[in-house]
Nucleic acid binder design. Sequence first.
DNA 1: AGCGTATATTTCCTATCGGAAACATGCGAA
DNA 2: TTCGCATGTTTCCGATAGGAAATATACGCT
Lengths: 206, 206
Amino acid sequence: MNRNGDGGRMMRAASGSGPLKVQPLKLGERIREIRRRNSWTLEEASRRTGLARSTLSKIENEQMSPTFEVVQKLAAGLEIELPQLFEAAEPSGATGRRTVTREGEGRPRVTATYEHELLSVELAKRKMIPFKTRVRARSFDAFSSWVRHPGEEFLYVLEGSVAFYTEFYEPVVLAAGDSVYYDSDMGHACVSVGDEDALILWVSTG
Amino acid sequence: MNRNGDGGRMMRAASGSGPLKVQPLKLGERIREIRRRNSWTLEEASRRTGLARSTLSKIENEQMSPTFEVVQKLAAGLEIELPQLFEAAEPSGATGRRTVTREGEGRPRVTATYEHELLSVELAKRKMIPFKTRVRARSFDAFSSWVRHPGEEFLYVLEGSVAFYTEFYEPVVLAAGDSVYYDSDMGHACVSVGDEDALILWVSTG
DNA sequence: AGCGTATATTTCCTATCGGAAACATGCGAA
DNA sequence: TTCGCATGTTTCCGATAGGAAATATACGCT
């Protein structure tokens, strides 16, 4: 079967071999792009944001620098995350990003207890970090120091079953198909129960 | 099983037409906090950003809405990432949060093409939204309108295989164990190939 | 108390933002 | 061609952002 993924990143060519100049971040271009991508006219965008057509036009053409208040209205009305507005200049680019990771082709990291496989490695800047991890059977040393780091995590059990420990909660046994979502600034650890290794998929906020 | 689900936040209230409802987001307070935390006086901050003391004072006291140009200078001068400026203060209390979802006990939402199951429903505010979805075999109508919403998504194929379509890229066939990470403001759609339904796990940024 | 210094706020004033309306441009139909 | 309509741009002007300087405010020190 045809599996013609590119498997990698493919971003718009970084412009300019010229002198390094701090990107003024062309907000107007970005706004226009987003509006066009959704096939909104200035009139529609005006309704959505509560801003005048003329104002939108001037912003898109870099003929004025909107006040922060207006930027907020833009973000709300055009349904874009505010941070997205700013990262977008080069990293994510006008064309968007996509990366495919084939089974077993992530970046491995092996410890005594876990076999981690970092997925989607090609994308340097991303909001989530996905892993697939094999938890070795009967590995109890995980207790010794549980993990604790800012952010949130989602964990899904693919195979086998694990005992999931966190601060403030009772341990819970998760079987294949079960999942857990938690604040990762709580101490947490995951150990395999039963004779088989467990396979888990987990996603962490960047 | 809870079957009266509204399907959660699948679509981000695209329903539009209602104009502005801009969140508060007290920029001034945030700026002042950052400045104070670094023990900078307004004078120092003025040197760093190239903005007048008076301007900084007025911004911190919410007496004016800075232009976007000024916001950029603020970010550069005070050495903060622009996105960081807009993220809400850390909500989660000292106790942390955790929620377990057993297999098949998410909140379902069924369409002609997909059987979605929203996981981790109990946590109202979370940075990621995990779904498990059954993609019906030979469902081509997904083409008619592909999805497009701000943020990023990670998709992992649990069973079967799917064709994954996005703007700007060639379609790619993903088999069990394969995964893809993409900017979800690109149009995207997922259809099952082969005779079997496909089962996918995907996580979307909140 | 008064004086001096350092920091923050308020007062001007000009440049510019942002909205209403006029103007320009494109395009399909008669 | 003409009109008609829809979309994007420019003009005009009141409202306001942002800088320079004056004015508080706080805190030591003698």
